[in-house]
Amino acid sequence: MNLSSRMIVVLTSVGVLSGALLSTVGLLTRERIEANRLKEIEEAIVSVVPGTTVNQKIYEEKDFTVYATRGEAGQITGYAIYTAGTGFQDKIVIMFGTDASLQKIFRLTILDQKETPGLGAKITDEEAFLQFWENKDCSQPLTLRKPPVSREELGASEINAITGATISSEAVLNTVNASLAKLRSLIQEGTINIEGNNGQ
């Protein structure tokens, strides 16, 4: 066999063998990887809308998914909103829960972020940031309180900024405000109808 055909044969067989091996590995792990992702979302939904036992995806687009959540008796408990916005370094992926009338935010949790450790990364910290999101009035856009004050002094729709990480705090806030506005307009248009999804 001359050199060029030998090169072709060797490279082709190396490629084919590696492809076969990888598709096997891909098949074997795909289900588990997908299950991990779903489990993470499921857990986040339950944590942001209290009393949720079932949820149903009612709207989906890139970086914006809405889940309608229901309690044990089938009553509507609210919405869980999965969204992402640009932070200081990279995308911040957020899940937050509201009541069915979109007047109140129950809780917020950060699913993924790459903010500066020790500064912006505090957006995942309960003490420094997440606790201020509990039971907030979101009938009007949320605003940032800077410098931070105690939880009692904080207004009904105010969130404390993290000292030294205003950009990250603002990023979360803006993402939440934008998602709420988007969800409201989707409901107004009739694209999302929480009752209408009853039977599906």
Binding site: L22, T29, R32, I33, E40
Partner: peptide, 15 residues
Amino acid sequence: TFVTMADRFLAAFFP
């Protein structure tokens, strides 16, 4: 090939 295997393995078992 081995890197992709390691990557998938970590994603599946140690997310």
